[in-house]
Design a protein around this nucleic acid. Structure first.
Lengths: 142, 142
DNA sequence: TCTTGACTTAGAGTTAACTCTAAAAATTAT
DNA sequence: ATAATTTTTAGAGTTAACTCTAAGTCAAGA
């Protein structure tokens, strides 16, 4: 039921260096050490790492993730802070997703634009496709 | 039809420092200078900035954004590279969006979890709610 | 004209998050 | 038992993307 740092690195896709760094930063306060000083990760340590990846992946800094972990250690008196943190993160995440959707539209547009030009040459493309004409006008001026 | 660096900073939400930095890095090769050396941004410069924000917002590094800009300057011989770049970016973006959806589920779960505990106390919560019980088991062991 | 605020440059400094090094100790494989 | 691999530590180094400073120039309002 215990994993070495190398095994955890493989499992999570993080490097052993990064895992030690996270521990040094206080993000993995529950990792045990063997009698000879080797780190022994449990399944719940790996669950912590999964949550850390989730928060990191939604743009939270390691510093703020540590804040959450400190709240967890502090106990039940911080339950409302923790709930608030997740609610805030949800709002941010919703904004991110909306933003990515907009970016997707722009990128789809660029793909259509370049596909057209490559297929038909830049001459005449805009005249045959009013949507592209409007975009060209918007980006490059009349 | 020309904007000062301060006006562009306001329009885009970037700082003037950042705009100068972008220019230094080759990301704004079309910005003109007035006779006395002041930057004069055009509408199309602002469009470039919008595209830069799009690419940056989907995880592209400034270095790779510069590559794209260099291709644009190079002319029609790079059209296929540019199309490929946007197609790659679209794939990455789709992966990102899927990942964010997963993160959203985890965060929603945490919100439900903390809401329950705060409302009803931690005693009995798990027994009354088998989904939470399963999660607790998964995270903290039996 | 005077003053105030915006702009210029080169270059230094900062921050977050790693990433690596070296030398020693522990573990695993043969 | 020996060799190869993995892990340990403290601490140094790296990278990307800003962010700021200083000393001077330019522009707009009273």
């Amino acid at each position: 039921m215990g994993y070495s740092i190398g095994q955890v690195a493989k499992k999570t896709g993080l490097t052993a260096h990064t895992l030690r760094y996270y521990e040094k930063e206080g993000l993995l306060p529950f990792v045990k050490k063997s009698s000879s000083g080797l780190r022994v990760f449990s399944d719940s340590d790996i669950e912590w790492l999964v949550l850390i990846e989730c928060l990191k992946g939604t743009g939270m800094s390691l510093k703020n993730i540590k804040q959450y972990i400190d709240w967890c250690i502090e106990g039940d008196s911080t339950l409302t802070q923790r709930l608030e943190m997740f609610k805030n993160q949800k709002v941010k995440l919703e904004e991110q997703m909306k933003q990515l959707q907009k970016h997707m539209e722009k990128i789809n547009y660029k793909i259509a634009y370049y596909t057209e030009i490559i297929a038909n040459g830049s001459e005449g493309v805009f005249e045959r496709n009013p949507k592209l004409a409007a975009e060209r006008k918007r980006v490059y001026g009349k």
